[in-house]
Simulated scan of single mutants.
Amino acid sequence: MFAAYAARIDDADPLSALEVGDVPDPTPPDGWVVVDVVASALNHHDLWSLKGVGLGEDALPMILGCDAAGRDPDGNEVVVYPVVADPATGKTSILSEKFPGTLAEKVAVPRASLVPKPAELSFAEAACLPTAWLTAYRMLVSCGQVGPGSSVLVQGAGGGVATAAVAIGVALGATVYATSRDASKRERAEKLGAVAVESGARLPERVDCVIETVGEATFDHSQKSLKPGGRLVVSGATSGHLPRLDLRRLFFHNISVLGTSMGSPEELAGLLALCARTGLRPIIDSTFTLANVRDAFAHLHAGDVFGKVVVTA
């Protein structure tokens, strides 16, 4: 089958470590099935893998990709939940770390990792959801307890999880504020239904929940933007992982700080249902064929991306 894989590790020039070509078809262990991939989507995780983050030399060559939608052996339309357990050890990892990923014509996954794809979503749309969008959904719903009438601040609009959080928050009926230093990204956030503000600017109100993926650069602003009893939900630290935490504000205002990543298959099913019910759709930046996946990686690596980069079979 045709696939995109990490043939080596190159921190300085990750794209040079990417190879595209024929590899053996997957052979699933007991309890696993082979899914025919119709669409997949890139994540920065794929670039980090080429740099050796989370992927060791002993695992090479490794098919890349975490997200996918396709058809199971019975022809059912499914979305692949990307966190899998090793049948031998029970330890979990995300696809493309210990087990081959989704940037291929076929992928082997546990049968329990398959979530039905709603008919309302295309394969390309559904393929965008299992990683960044699922993380944002868990941050807002399970951790942030966001619903109709809530207020939310999303720091760093433009990033994958942050962009998803803006769109999901609006679909949930919340008032969403989104920050960015980039005027064009603030404009895009406004088109998604957010109230866009410059990074660090005072908000019109204090909010119930802050979605924090930036880290040190925005953390103080995040704390100050919460109303008493608010929830600061963290899933990233792109600007640094050792921010200053104001403990007096924390206990005087009864603020909760919650860390999280990814989500569960049940939460993925909830996200899919929300999309089907409300018309919420992931933002697709661009679409490439698997044959042109090198161009997809180059586009993501260049950095001027708003939304998901999709790869179709």
Rank of each mutant, 00 (worst) to 15 (best):
G173E: 07
A174F: 01
T175S: 10
V176C: 03
V176M: 06
V176R: 00
Y177T: 09
A178H: 03
T179L: 07
S180N: 01
S180K: 05
S180E: 06
R181V: 06
R181D: 00
S184V: 14
S184N: 12
R186W: 03
R186Y: 08
E187M: 04
K191M: 10
K191P: 02
K191E: 12
L192E: 09
A196C: 08
V197N: 10
E198L: 09
E198K: 06
S199I: 05
G200K: 09
A201T: 12
A201G: 13
A201N: 07
A201P: 10
R202M: 14
R202L: 15
R202N: 15
L203I: 03
D208K: 00
C209G: 11
C209V: 12
I211K: 00
T213H: 03
T213C: 06
V214F: 06
G215N: 11
G215Q: 04
G215W: 11
E216T: 13
F219V: 08
F219E: 07
F219A: 07
D220E: 13
H221K: 11
H221A: 15
H221R: 13
S222Q: 00
Q223A: 11
S225E: 13
S225Y: 01
S225N: 04
S225A: 15
K227E: 03
G229Q: 09
G229L: 01
L232A: 04
L232P: 07
V233D: 02
V234F: 00
V234D: 02
V234G: 04
S235E: 07
G236A: 02
G236K: 08
G236L: 13
G236V: 10
A237M: 11
T238Y: 08
T238F: 05
T238L: 10
S239P: 15
G240M: 12
L242Q: 14
P243M: 08
L245I: 15
D246P: 05
D246M: 06
L247H: 08
R248V: 13
R249N: 14
R249T: 07
L250N: 11
F251P: 04
F252A: 13
H253M: 11
H253P: 06
I255P: 05
S256P: 00
L258Q: 13
L258I: 09
G259L: 12
G259Y: 08
G259N: 03
G263A: 13
G263Y: 01
G263F: 03
P265L: 04
P265C: 07
P265H: 07
